[in-house]
Amino acid sequence: MASGNNEAVSLESLSAQQLTQVKKQLDEELEHLTSSFTQLHAAQSKFRECLRCVQGSGASTLQEHKSILVPLTNSLYVRGNLTSASHVVVDVGTGFYVEKDIKSAAQFYENKVGEVGGSIKELEAIVQGKSNNLRVVEEILRQKLAAPPPQAPSP
């Protein structure tokens, strides 16, 4: 473990109260990282779904001027007409949309799935390391709490 000024500190030298604080901090970090991990998986699933939709919308299945339902939210759709069967509008982030041909859109989503997958792997390694640190801290804390208090020297 390292303190704020990058000095190494032996966990055995910390008091039970200090170890409890370290454990609390590790618990909070793990909770945050786990939440981020869940969000990354959700984003990857959305990109995969977009990729599936783009790949499934080849020119053979779509016809120009065909009536379609356009999603405004997860539960609100409006009727619209398809103006181009070979181009789609892609959300590239932070509210920006770009018109792309089907092949470019598929490549965009494949890249996004790969990028998020890499981030998930990196985060898995970090979570694993934090979990190991937490187990070590918990074990040392258990030993400190189970050990009898030190005896004061006799005069």
Rank of each mutant, 00 (worst) to 15 (best):
E115F: 12
A8D: 13
G80M: 01
G58L: 07
G118S: 14
R79F: 00
V89N: 14
V9F: 09
E29W: 09
T20G: 09
G58Y: 06
N132D: 15
Y77T: 05
G56P: 05
S84F: 04
D91I: 00
L82A: 07
E7M: 11
E49R: 14
G95I: 05
S3T: 15
V113M: 02
A85N: 14
L82D: 05
P150G: 05
A125R: 13
Q143I: 04
G129W: 08
R52W: 05
Q18A: 11
S75R: 03
L145W: 04
K23L: 06
S45T: 12
S75M: 02
E49N: 12
Q18V: 09
E110Q: 15
Q55T: 12
H65Y: 13
E49P: 01
G114W: 11
N81Y: 13
S35F: 14
N132C: 14
V22P: 02
K103F: 13
L123H: 00
Q151P: 09
A146W: 03
Q44R: 09
V113N: 03
L145A: 05
E12C: 12
V9S: 09
D27V: 00
Q39Y: 01
K46M: 11
N6P: 05
V54G: 01
K46L: 12
D27M: 06
V98P: 02
V78P: 02
A85P: 08
T34R: 07
V90T: 02
K100T: 00
I102L: 15
D27E: 13
G117E: 04
A16E: 13
T83P: 06
A105H: 05
L69Q: 02
N74R: 07
K66F: 02
E12W: 11
Q151V: 11
I68K: 08
S15P: 06
N5P: 09
E12K: 15
K66M: 13
A8G: 13
L14G: 06
H32E: 15
K103C: 10
E12H: 15
D91E: 09
A16R: 10
I68L: 12
V78E: 04
L14T: 08
K23T: 05
N132A: 15
V88Y: 01
L141W: 01
T20I: 01
T83V: 13
P148W: 06
R135M: 11
E28G: 08
T61D: 10
A125D: 11
T73M: 05
M1D: 10
A42G: 12
S104M: 10
A59K: 14
T20N: 09
T94G: 07
Q39W: 07
E138P: 04
R79L: 00
T83A: 11
V88P: 02
F47H: 06
H65E: 08
Y77K: 07
N111C: 14
I120R: 03
I120M: 03
P155N: 12
N132Q: 15
S131R: 15
E138Q: 12
F37P: 03
L141E: 01
L26S: 07
G129Y: 12
S57G: 09
V88F: 00
A147T: 06
P153G: 05
D91G: 05
H65D: 10
A16S: 15
E64I: 06
K100P: 03
P155Y: 12
L145V: 09
S15Q: 06
I140G: 00
